[in-house]
Every structure is written in structure tokens, then in C-alpha cells.
């Protein structure tokens, strides 16, 4: 299908005696953000690794941009980028060198110009010449995602992009993902956080016990459940709201004084 970026049919994968994927089906349309939601060990990373040609499935089929991930792996690799569960950056190289390295490997015409562009886009210009090992978790993740954008791949896989990040880092990544999708990139992300899927995804699939047990837009998923009860509850700030307010951009100023006004 012309408007389908990823197609997965009856995907199966076992590791030794453990059957991880027991026939997974889903489809991701071009330009959408699709969230694969599931708890730890549900098979999210296995699915991503098969789609990004790192693992071979035992059964079923998967294609990205119309190319089979097993038989046409090289074509698939030209069109995708994988951002794994841990920021895969070279800690000894600087941020700029990391980007230039990927640009050279992808055969981008002007590697240094591409690197500079991505550094400013991801707010890493000041840190460009520092070793990536000295970056904070959020910065390393941004560099990681920037590296995935080199050569403008059509499809990006983000495997638990915000796991292990502090709330600020998480918001940074969310903002980046939304901007990417606005630029027309297809994004398949996995997450174990319900609010993350809710915030970002156009469509959501719930992976549980090696199968997709529900999928659709958030509204479609909501319809699967009893209608919402209307209750009046005093809206208390969540701890996240409070934390972000205190440490937010005006952290240097006297927060107590502002609150007492």
C-alpha cells in the first residue's frame, strides 16, 4: 500500500525455549507517530530489532517502505534509523565528531555542514566540541536522536526514548519527536509509559504476551472501555507540575517569593 510505511504480518520470534513474539500484526502509515505500548519483556525491543534488520524473525513477514526486512535488508537500512534503548553515542568523540562520523558513513555530501545544522537544531551548539561522555542524560539523548536524523531517513525507530531521563529531559525528547513528525518523518516508538503514548502518538498498539491485544487512535481505544463517569475533583498540581515549576527556567530566582504573591 502506498501510504503504509511499515507493515508487520504474523511476526514470530523465539529465544531458545521462550516465545517472545507470537504472531504480531500492525501497520504504520506514512508520517504518523505510532506507539508500541507494553510492559517490560513484552517484546517491544525484539519487534524494533527485527524491523531495523538486527534480528531475523522466525516466522511471518515485515516490510519497511515496501522493502522486506530480511530479503532487502540493505534497502531497508538506507531508509531507517534506529535509536536504541540507551543513547548509542561515542563517548570519546565530541558531539560534532559523532554527527560527522554518521554523516560520512551514510555518504552525506557535506558532512560538516549537516553536523552544524543538527547541532543548532538540537540546541547542542555550545556543547559541540565537548566529549559526549560529559553530556547530561537529556543531552546525550538529543545527540543520539540528532545522529539518527543524519541523511533524513524516512522512518525512525525510537526504542523507549525517555526511559532513564529526568522530567526535563523527557519533555525535551517529546518536543523533538513532535517536531520530527511535523516534518513528515514516520516514527515508531516503544514505551512503557501510558502518558507518553497519549502525549505523542497518532495511533497506539498494545503489545502484551507476544501479541497485539488492542490498537487504534486514543479515542478508538477509549471506546473499548465503559463511558467515562463525570466526577468533580479539585485539580491538585501533580508532583511533576510542582517539580518542573520549582526547577524550571526561573530556577535561579527566588521561587518562594513568587509563590507568595
Amino acid at each position: 500500500m502506498a501510504d503504509s510505511a511499515i507493515q508487520v504480518n504474523d511476526l514470530r520470534k523465539s529465544f531458545k525455549a521462550t516465545q517472545v513474539l507470537k504472531g504480531v500484526d500492525f501497520e504504520v502509515r506514512r508520517g504518523e507517530i505510532f506507539a508500541l505500548l507494553g510492559s517490560n519483556g513484552a517484546g517491544k525491543t525484539t519487534t524494533i530489532n527485527i524491523l531495523s534488520t538486527l534480528l531475523k524473525p522466525d516466522g511471518g513477514s515485515a516490510s519497511v517502505c515496501g522493502f522486506n526486512v530480511v530479503r532487502q535488508a540493505e534497502k531497508v537500512r538506507e531508509r531507517i534509523s534506529l535509536t536504541g534503548q540507551f543513547a548509542a553515542v561515542d563517548g570519546i568523540l565530541t558531539g560534532r565528531e559523532n554527527l560527522v562520523l554518521i554523516a560520512k558513513l551514510r555518504g552525506v555530501a557535506n558532512a560538516h555542514k549537516t553536523a552544524d545544522m543538527l547541532l543548532s537544531r538540537f540546541g547542542l551548539r555550545d556543547a559541540a566540541n565537548r566529549r559526549a561522555d560529559s553530556y547530561s542524560g537529556g543531552m546525550a539523548r538529543r545527540l543520539d536522536i540528532a545522529m539518527s536524523l543524519v541523511g533524513t531517513p524516512a522512518v525512525i525507530f525510537l526504542d523507549e526514548p525517555t526511559t532513564g531521563l529526568d522530567p526535563e529531559g523527557r519533555l525535551e525528547v517529546w518536543k523533538t519527536v513532535k517536531e520530527l513528525a511535523d516534518g513528515g518523518t514516520t516514527i515508531l516508538l516503544t514505551t512503557q509509559y501510558l502518558d507518553e503514548a497519549e502525549q505523542l502518538a497518532d495511533r497506539i498498539a498494545v503489545l502484551h504476551g507476544g501479541k497485539i491485544i488492542a490498537s487504534g487512535t486514543l479515542d478508538e481505544l477509549k471506546k473499548l472501555f465503559p463511558p467515562a463517569k463525570v466526577e468533580y475533583v479539585e485539580k491538585q498540581p501533580s508532583l511533576e507540575d510542582i517539580f518542573l515549576a520549582i526547577v524550571g527556567q526561573n530556577a535561579g530566582q527566588n521561587a518562594g517569593q513568587r509563590e507568595s504573591k
Binding site: N49, S52, T53, L54, E74, R77, E78, I80, S81, L82, G84, Q85, F86, A87, A88, V89, D90, G91, I102, L105, R106, G107, M147
Partner: peptide
């Protein structure tokens, strides 16, 4: 650090 995975999922 996942760099093998990164390189292997690229056209390298």
C-alpha cells in the same frame, strides 16, 4: 554502548 547496533542498522 549499542554502537554495533547503530552501525548495523545503517547502510554500512
Amino acid at each position: 554502548r549499542g554502537l554495533f547496533a547503530r552501525f548495523h542498522s545503517m547502510p554500512v
